[in-house]
Design a protein around this nucleic acid. Sequence first.
DNA 1: GCGGCAGGTAACCGTTCAGTTACCTCAGGG
DNA 2: CCCTGAGGTAACTGAACGGTTACCTGCCGC
Lengths: 219, 219
Amino acid sequence: MREKLPPQRERAAAALSARATATRQRILDAAFVEFAEKGLAGARVDEIAARAGANKRMLYAHFGAKEALWLEVLETAYAAKRAEERAVEVADLPPAEAMAKLVAFNLRYVARHPEFLAILHQENLHRAAYLASSARVRALYSPLLESLRAVLARGEAVAIFRAGVDPVQLYVSMLGLSHFHLANRHTLSTIFGTAMDTEAAIAAREAHIIAVVLGYLRP
Amino acid sequence: MREKLPPQRERAAAALSARATATRQRILDAAFVEFAEKGLAGARVDEIAARAGANKRMLYAHFGAKEALWLEVLETAYAAKRAEERAVEVADLPPAEAMAKLVAFNLRYVARHPEFLAILHQENLHRAAYLASSARVRALYSPLLESLRAVLARGEAVAIFRAGVDPVQLYVSMLGLSHFHLANRHTLSTIFGTAMDTEAAIAAREAHIIAVVLGYLRP
DNA sequence: GCGGCAGGTAACCGTTCAGTTACCTCAGGG
DNA sequence: CCCTGAGGTAACTGAACGGTTACCTGCCGC
């Protein structure tokens, strides 16, 4: 009766034993890697189980279906990013420095977690169908966007930034400037013949996108 | 002997009949749609054949394998973009207007062809393995990058643009500003609750990214 | 007007995959 | 110490998939 019979989200209650929790976590981690590497359709359930040092029985006991596991991975990926965002403190910094920190954070985050990009793109391929079904993620409003709004207002107030900047547009721009370089690092480096994910390339990119954002924001 | 036996790229010579060419083209078009919608792993060969109003026999006769068809689609997608880029004429425009036109072109192109983004991301998921094997695409250097270099130099010469801007970085930024908004339109609109692919949203985005690029370029 | 063959059809094949079942193991409470 | 059931194993299943084969058709040169 515990598992699956009620089609609702399983095991909200029913605290798991330490061993079970560990197995569940290993499966989730393995799924994250496999999905990021091969996408939802390309990922293999057997491979996930093998990577996790578990097997399919346990995978299905914990998650019920490949797609449910995908949703869990997606939620985890978003939650992890939001959690790191929450740790970015910019309220004490002068506006320009604060803005630079926000921009750099995004670039560095995706450089550290390129799998996040892969998951995100896959989900967009599915027209965000799984994301749409996740109340949990939709409730996870970006702390970064809020910080950006505040910094923008502060900078505008002291006339360091131009007036009338739309925070959402700027937020999307900030993400775009960071993501594209890394999301397309393989095609870019094939075409330009230079690696995009070395520390040097990332540092150069960081300097550039900070210059773009701050250059734009000048009054 | 005609097909497949030599493992080289098939049918370079051997002009096809009009009917065969048409079938081949229909299969290619159908594959483009199917691959863009579901990715390489998610796409179904039967579905491609059905969409094309053909069948698998012909698909395999013309392309030999699903992956070879993918490569063909990828090459076609790149070639199509490069061809449209070649038609963008900016040499006669003042630097700022020329730059705005280049930026707008990219946004409008991906808005018109969101499938291009899907193909591009899939290829990056595969670490550009297929692209790497395509001498044809690697030879297709972007005319847009060349235009951008020229415009940048012109603007710098008359002190309308700041000095020392790296054209490749700016090119990547231009693409990032355009692509992200549309590549992630489904997750973005799920999270923000507003559609990203309406004409109004695209026009607003266009105005913003032009402002960002030109704002940055001010000396 | 007919023989050959490029172009097309559809049934088929072996493999792979998501998901299931039958069974084992072993910790812990009675 | 043995019984119970949660946690785990591995073999299995039916369907779907990529790719192939055996066969049909109608156009074109002769």
